[in-house]
């Protein structure tokens, strides 16, 4: 990606990758694309069911709580905004880790990777709290205590989609944190210093940004629309 590109260069005549990218990074991109279709399918099926329903619960009524604040407090969007902020922030620390890797600054890679892992863990904690809270209110797969906006009894579609999609995203965050920890261990061991480059940090970084990207859509689909 960093090689100088001239207009005359013949990308498809062999001898070098037409994508100017290493095999591993290209395959990470393709994996992410397939994952994008998986999440897309989930979100589109959610949209289809929502378009099919005569009414739907109001997210501002469902998600209005905040940890350590009384249940009566009406704080729509506040908690999920915090979660969004945490995930964007951890994306930034991930880019900074990749950037430090380009400069082969091992100390900075370690520092920013640790912050990214902390961010991911913080996001997961927030999500765990939100799930526990909703579960206490009686929401789960197959159970929906929240009424529709027009006052009618809602089907369980709302909770089924919410828990499935945020759960699938949370699973991605979890595996992202685990991958980050593995990469951090390798950085500490000096694996990439010996290898001469920190491309593994870039690959796991791509995955991590993708997780952030998916959250942007989940945030819009479940909390804003």
């Amino acid at each position: 990606m960093d090689t100088a590109v001239t207009a005359q260069k013949k990308w498809w005549s062999g001898g070098h990758s037409p994508f100017n990218l290493s095999y591993g990074k290209l395959m990470m991109w393709y994996f992410l694309m397939s994952d994008a279709f998986t999440f897309g399918a989930l979100l589109i099926s959610y949209g289809t069911i929502r378009f099919m329903s005569t009414s739907w619960p109001d997210p501002n009524e469902v998600f209005h709580s905040f940890p350590f604040v009384s249940h009566e407090a009406h704080l729509p969007l506040v908690f999920v905004s915090l979660m969004t902020f945490i995930l964007i922030m951890s994306s930034v620390t991930m880019v900074l880790a990749v950037h430090a890797g380009h400069q082969r600054n091992r100390k900075d890679v370690v520092k920013w990777m640790i912050w990214t892992i902390i961010g991911g863990a913080a996001f997961l904690s927030c999500q765990a709290w939100e799930w526990m809270h909703l579960h206490e209110l009686g929401a789960w797969w197959g159970r929906n205590p929240f009424a529709n906006v027009d006052g009618t009894v809602a089907s369980t579609n709302f909770t089924n989609f919410f828990f499935t999609i945020t759960g699938f995203h949370g699973l991605h965050v979890t595996s992202g944190v685990i991958l980050n920890i593995i990469i951090l261990a390798n950085v500490l061991k000096g694996t990439y210093e010996d290898r001469g480059h920190y491309e593994m940090v870039e690959k796991v970084g791509l995955y991590w940004h993708f997780v952030d990207l998916v959250w942007v859509f989940v945030f819009t689909c479940f909390y804003l629309l």
Binding site: T3, G15, H16, S17, G101, H197, E199
Partner: peptide
């Protein structure tokens, strides 16, 4: 392959 840039 020439794309194995190392970022050095």
């Amino acid at each position: 392959m020439e794309h194995t840039h190392t970022g050095v």
